[in-house]
Simulated scan of single mutants.
Amino acid sequence: MVKPVLARIAHPVEKLFDRVFLRREPERVVIDPYLGYATPEEILLRGRVLTSLRRTTPSPEASWWVNLRQMAGLFFTREVSERTIRVGEATAVSDEEGYFTLHLPRGDAAPGWFAAEAEIDGGESATLEALVVGDAPFLVISDIDDTVMETGAYSLVRNLWTSLTGNALTRHVFPDAVALMKGFEAAGAPIFFVSSSPWNLHYFLRRIFERHGLPKAPVFLRDLGISRTQFISGTHGDHKGAAIDSLLAAHPGVPVMLVGDTGQHDPKVYLAAAERHPGRIVRVILREPGKGADKRDRARIAALEDRGIKVDHGPSYDGFSAALPD
């Protein structure tokens, strides 16, 4: 009950701030493109309308203070609502936080990356991309924090320090995670990433992933904005569970592997997903950072195994194959 009450208080305050300090309607706007995905019927192109794009200029020698200022700058965006975005005959209107999703008929789109040029009223066009999955042996849905990239998410202080004082050249990506993801890619499995990080970091994360050779993949991030009914968009588990549900619905009948860690309640989230989708999740792979799995996580791992789901877990992914269980 606390978050809806906070939302009712904070939302009008935020709107008043916008009217007083940002009351001028922007003359030109831009699209911040996000990687989308497809369902059997549609291609979903995603993005956000802003007054300008925020990007960092990383240097390996940059001080923590320079990195902090640049990372903080990614969050000082001005979102633009009620702008119409078009791709052919398909249109979408940006919401109060600037987000939009264009729904295009899938038609005979070939498997792979679909690209289309999106036009926007009073702004620059942008290329939007979406992953169209064809026949796939299985689907991979992976966490990011302490799964693929070291953040120390199991410790709030460590997580904030790592996230805000590093840059795209200094952030540590686990080599074993890169090897695992490349193995999935070689097996023909499409990959999707889910994280509680905000959408402001979408381009930042893409740069890191590209630098380390991770497969190109859609990312599901989190809206930290304030709406009329929500003070920050749910919990970590709610966000990750909703993304898993959306991806399973978008790829009916395809077996699913879930990759994560024990530092941010992934066993709890993955067990709940397995209970909601009996028979769909066939394997779970978990890194055990920090002190490793606690008593509750060990119980959830056992519960996953009791459902016939193969669970691989340990301090690293070394030795874990990127294949369906026998």
Rank of each mutant, 00 (worst) to 15 (best):
D223S: 04
R206K: 08
T235L: 09
Q230V: 15
I244A: 07
P198C: 05
V219R: 05
G234A: 01
L201F: 01
S233W: 12
K240E: 00
R206P: 01
G253R: 12
T235M: 04
G225R: 08
F220K: 10
L224Q: 08
A249W: 06
T262A: 02
E210G: 04
H202S: 05
K240S: 01
H202L: 05
G237E: 15
Q230G: 03
W199F: 09
S233A: 12
A242D: 12
Q230I: 14
V219N: 01
G260M: 10
L205T: 03
H251S: 04
T235F: 02
L258R: 02
V254F: 05
V259N: 02
L214A: 01
T262W: 12
L214I: 11
A243K: 13
K216M: 15
G253M: 13
P255L: 06
F220G: 10
G213T: 09
D245Q: 11
L201E: 00
G234Y: 06
L247S: 08
S246F: 11
V254C: 03
Y203T: 15
S227E: 12
V256L: 11
I232Y: 13
I226E: 09
G260T: 12
D261S: 09
R206Q: 13
T262N: 05
T229W: 14
F209E: 07
L221M: 04
P252R: 06
M257I: 15
H236N: 11
K216N: 09
K240L: 06
R228L: 11
R211P: 03
V259R: 07
I208Y: 00
A217C: 08
V219L: 10
F204T: 04
